[in-house]
Design a protein around this nucleic acid. Structure first.
Lengths: 266, 266
DNA sequence: ACGTTTGAGAGAGCGGTGCTCTCGTTTCGA
DNA sequence: TCGAAACGAGAGCACCGCTCTCTCAAACGT
């Protein structure tokens, strides 16, 4: 315990928690009403909390998660460094706030994109989700990296805060496939996948989410989910190089074709 | 310039450089022969360099890239912190060494996996590459995160050192598809993709790599490449949750089916 | 209305970090 | 052999996360 106080031990990932347990979302009811009949002190505290998150987001965007420093946030806030510990227990807790903030913003972006697409246009809805994720990732690369990039060593994000917001996108994707299946827009083999233990896991997921789609399609959906974020990550993290494509959006549209096709919505 | 010396400004990604410019690999000829007729001092220097990389890798594996500290490496090396600057100009340069080391190890792993597969078994070769990437990523999560995870803010990895090793995997993938195409194992639309500017970019890549595969397949290959690493990243970074799958390898095999299928090798 | 509790902020301090500088010493090569 | 180059050590600077104590004012209870 004499080593570095927090940084050294930090080593788990933010998204161990945005695990596939989307079934119990009711747990997330932190952050009660913003300012309804509160004492002046409590109102001031809420305002300061909001300022901390806002300034933290700014630093995250400009310098990245690794360079996010509580001291710098305190400076911008006009406080001495120790004072911010009245509001945030540690640097990691600030990261958690930013993680939740990021997941919510991404979820809102996806939801907003879906309002423009006819519920019966399943490929269109899937493409809209993909485009929304990509657009948000490119607009907020640092937050995207925080959510979907390297695990922050030793950092154990609290599942009760991050699981709900963290699963909004995949829940939307599953909705699309479920809709399409129930509308008969997808044909897929309804037989069990092999091996048996994978089939059991997929069956459990179907049951917990109340899905009608066959397990083979659940597996394909998981692939499409990972592949979608793979494409976005490749672009946000610059894996294609800077001068390879005139407009990477063109390539992403091709990738969307492949994604739609791979779940049988081609 | 009075701010933090290096950490604060760090903000670019390692893999801007493992860009798609695999065509000029000849540039990478750093690291001459290890110890052929060298003065004792030079030999000692080489040994120290190797020790630094070795200890750095250990710290990377145990604590992650964020916690990698030159001072800690110096301690393990029995040197005072300033002394290691005789060998490594900065923490970022140590990261570069580890990046190159990691790319090479991954490339070796992929090459080794391919030796066991018949050159004519194109789906088998593609699956072998995928399994090798996954196995290496799970075995070396910290190095995997360094290569394919969040960009290190402000860090501009030198392309001349990282481009070659960084493109070994995708080069192998392209080889497989090219072989399969020339063997007539893939059927694909040979028409141009839209829009025109994407078609031009893909045509340029074909030309530069001397490929016979049609541009539509180049686009699909890029998708498969990103999707493969998306699947591996999802698993290495724990996005699936810890208790969701009895053995994630089973799911990955399903994903490999999808990957093989998406490039027309189904 | 008044004492008491509680919370906010300041400041000092600890050990850690990357990195620079200087200063002796050792080694190499001409 | 002797000057130059490399090497290691040490001090030091500015920054980091975090803890502790102290003061002071606001809020609360009686």
């Amino acid at each position: 315990m004499t080593r570095r106080p927090a940084e050294s031990k930090s080593s788990a990932h933010i998204c161990y928690y945005c695990s596939l347990m989307w079934f119990d979302e009711g747990m997330v009811d932190t952050a009660a009403e913003p300012s309804a009949n509160l004492s002046p002190r409590a109102r001031a505290r809420q305002q300061t909390m909001r300022d901390i998150v806002r300034i933290g987001r700014e630093h995250l965007a400009t310098d990245g998660a690794a360079a996010l420093s509580l001291r710098a946030v305190a400076r911008d806030l006009g406080l001495v460094s120790s004072a911010v510990y009245r509001y945030v227990a540690s640097r990691d807790e600030l990261l958690t706030l930013l993680v939740v903030d990021g997941y919510d913003e991404l979820g809102d972006a996806v939801d907003a994109a879906l309002t423009d697409v006819d519920r019966a246009d399943h490929p269109g809805r899937m493409r809209a989700i993909g485009r929304a994720v990509r657009a948000w990732g490119l607009a907020e690369p640092a937050t995207y990296a925080l959510l979907f990039g390297s695990p922050v060593p030793g950092y154990e994000a609290p599942a009760e805060q991050t699981t709900g917001p963290g699963t909004r996108v995949v829940v939307r994707l599953v909705e699309v496939w479920e809709d399409a299946w129930q509308a008969g827009a997808i044909t897929a083999d309804e037989g069990a996948v092999s091996p048996r233990r994978l089939s059991r896991d997929l069956a459990r997921i179907r049951r917990q989410m109340g899905l009608a789609v066959p397990e083979r399609l659940v597996a394909r959906g998981l692939f499409a989910w990972a592949a979608l974020f793979g494409c976005v990550t490749w672009e946000v993290f610059g894996q294609y190089g800077s001068a390879t494509f005139t407009d990477p959006a063109d390539l992403f549209e091709q990738h969307l074709d492949a994604l739609v096709e791979t779940v049988g919505l081609g």
